[in-house]
């Protein structure tokens, strides 16, 4: 039995009567890539927001590496080793791309007031992080934009920087909200290959929201949860989802 990284039990959230998320259950095993799919307005992003504490959930239980995180503030949940991206790419716009990548790394010495006054204390670590940031930028093919402001990037490039921030964060669980919407095809492939490789080499656990179902079925994902209208309608490996695709198609009316 492999260890469970993220366990969600009976998660519910309603906005003034509208049940955005209704009684969701799933287990994300360690070292697994899971897809969360569903049509528009099916509650995927709200699920993300309630798990990460951005929006307080009404009821249910969320455990990160066995630790209950319901009702805790986002930064505490994140310190357990969980990082996420947002659907509408929220970069720090008046910061350079490089700076955007330099905030996420955890355990930076220079982020306390006293150490900030002593540059020699964080200089070595800063140098290492800059190298790492440039490597990630190179991988995402936006190295030439490193010194530009994030507000100068195109939509697709912004998505890439967002993924870059996630990779910089040393998190054990990565939660990506539509990571490749607006990114060119070959680069999408490359990003997925990298994510899979990182998962294998570094033991990461990855949860991806994706809108396009065909797309996610082709990417070799271990486990899929299908949501519609806030409900969880299917939970299983891609084969099962593929088999019941007809049912889903009928349900979605596609």
């Amino acid at each position: 039995m492999t260890e469970v990284a993220l366990s969600v039990r009976g998660l519910s959230k309603s906005f003034s009567g509208l049940k955005a998320v209704n009684n969701i259950h799933f287990d994300l095993k360690k070292n697994e890539i899971m897809g969360l799919i569903g049509p528009n307005g099916s509650g995927k992003s709200t699920t993300f927001n309630t798990i990460t504490g951005i929006i307080p959930a009404d009821s249910g239980s969320v455990k990160v590496f066995g630790e209950e995180v319901m009702g805790r503030p986002p930064h505490e949940i994140s310190s357990l080793g969980l990082s996420r991206t947002f659907q509408n790419t929220r970069l720090w716009r008046e910061l350079t791309v490089l700076e955007n990548l330099m905030i996420p790394p955890k355990n930076q010495f220079g982020t306390s007031v006293l150490n900030a006054l002593m540059p020699w204390k964080y200089k070595k670590q800063e140098g290492e992080l800059i190298e790492k940031a440039y490597t990630i930028l190179k991988l995402l093919e936006i190295e030439h934009m490193a010194e530009n402001y994030a507000s100068e990037l195109s939509g697709g490039q912004s998505k890439l920087v967002d993924i870059g921030r996630l990779l910089m964060s040393d998190a054990k669980i990565l939660m990506l909200d539509e990571p490749v919407a607006g990114v060119a095809g070959p680069l999408t492939e490359k990003i997925f290959q990298t994510l899979k490789k990182l998962r294998k080499e570094l033991g990461l656990t990855i949860l991806i929201i994706e809108h396009n179902m065909d797309f996610i079925l082709r990417k070799g994902i271990d486990h899929i949860v299908v949501m519609a209208n806030g409900e969880e309608i299917l939970n299983g490996p891609p084969d099962i989802v593929r088999q019941s695709l007809d049912v889903i198609d009928a349900y979605l009316g596609e």
């Binding site: 986002p74 720090w92 150490n115 900030a116």
Partner: peptide
């Protein structure tokens, strides 16, 4: 100019994202 100041500028731009990367 330090990482501390960088976090501050991140807070200026979007504090929710800073929080979701583990900063109080």
């Amino acid at each position: 100019r330090s990482p501390y100041g960088r976090v501050l500028r991140g807070i200026r731009e979007d504090e929710q994202v800073v929080a979701s990367y583990g900063y109080d």
